[in-house]
Amino acid sequence: MNTTSKSKADTIAKLREKILLMQGFKPAGAMHKRITGLMPVEQAFPNQVFPLGAVHEMISEGPEGAAACGGFLGGLLGTLMADAGICLWISNSRSLFPPALELFGASPHRIIFADLQREKDVLWATEEALKCEGLAAVVTELNNITFAQSRRLQLVVEKSHVTAFIWRKDPVYLSNTTAVARWKIAPAPSISEPGLPGVGFPHWQVELLKVRNGIPGSWEVTWSEGRFHTHDETVRKLVSVRNDVQKTG
């Protein structure tokens, strides 16, 4: 009885793996880049790896949220562009300040900005760019995208395996998309080192609102010493300590 149930579980696991493979999620291998410090977040994805060669949807609110999202994206791009990769940044309303990305490990001179005028052109350029296998990543600033449009991008990405980020600033509505994950990045109060004045390291509330075949969740992520730090219990404690200090002070 016990052995049969075990073999059943085995077959189910194997079938699951097969389905994931068919859906384009490959198990972790040499191809995959681990994003340092984002381990807990990566756990949310199928196979426990950050899905490359897929469309990610990033959501931010307001200019402050956009700043946070820009930083987080910069960190991701830093890993993706690590070996002299080139990134294309397509937008029709760019307010990103390129030099800031250097702090997040993405060399600004290796990012090519296409500042287009019409949203139609942005979509067209994104699709064309995603066909180009030489690009490390493509970031598109697009407020709204329909399901059909996202499916087009998904089909291109499945062939070329380029990682795409659709950055939606203040989206009017959150329609369904084919994106592998929907992230929401919001600024969070920075954590200062005890006894030191001033603003701390960039600190964000990173939410995975939707993950295909994964588990959505929410994490606090800091950028310091050139890498991400996802906050575990010790930092949580620090946060609570800080909150207490604020309450008493």
Partner: peptide, 28 residues
Amino acid sequence: AAEDAEITLLLDRIACRVGPGRIHRYVP
């Protein structure tokens, strides 16, 4: 370096469609 060439071709296509002066790259 084929990938680089592919990128220049892509940028040519974009520049051709949207007109000149729309593709930027920055240096300090």
